[in-house]
């Protein structure tokens, strides 16, 4: 039997825009994944703790405030500190394409900008799981 993919949808930082996070959460759920949504204003520490606690395969973060270059890499750093290397980390939101390379170099596997169909994200997760 195929294992159910577990995803943590997270809102790091102080940003309150969660329309995208909630739409993604629901789309992943409708695609058969188990989804935990953190709610707003999570620190990178809280996100990593929740990811470990919930034993998720994927962390999907959304930021529209411009704080992505600071907050996304903190999450991957903390995962590395905890020796967690089998969690796929992806991001989305209002993120200039010029920042994609930097974020990828910090271990964010993909960034999904405004207008990305949810099916694209679902497919990416299915084909890029690390465990």
């Amino acid at each position: 039997m195929e294992r159910t993919i577990r995803v943590l949808v997270a809102k790091p930082g102080l940003d309150g825009h969660d329309r995208g996070a909630k739409v993604i959460a629901r789309a992943l759920r409708d695609a058969g994944m188990e989804v935990v949504y953190t709610g707003l204003r999570q620190t990178p520490e809280q996100i990593v703790q929740a990811a470990v606690q919930e034993d998720v395969d994927v962390i999907a973060m959304s930021i529209l405030s411009g704080a992505h270059n600071h907050l996304f890499p903190r999450v991957t750093e903390l995962l590395a500190e905890k020796k967690v290397d089998d969690v796929l980390v992806i991001g989305g939101g209002v993120i200039p394409e010029g920042d994609y390379e930097f974020l990828k170099s910090k271990g964010i596997a993909a960034i999904f900008g405004p207008g990305t169909p949810t099916a694209t994200t679902v497919e990416f997760i299915r084909t890029h799981l690390k465990r």
Binding site: G13, L14, D15, R41, T43, S65, G66, A67, N69, H70, L71
Partner: peptide
Amino acid sequence: PLSAGEVGKV
């Protein structure tokens, strides 16, 4: 500490 990365952004 919670302001880190957010100051002056939006």
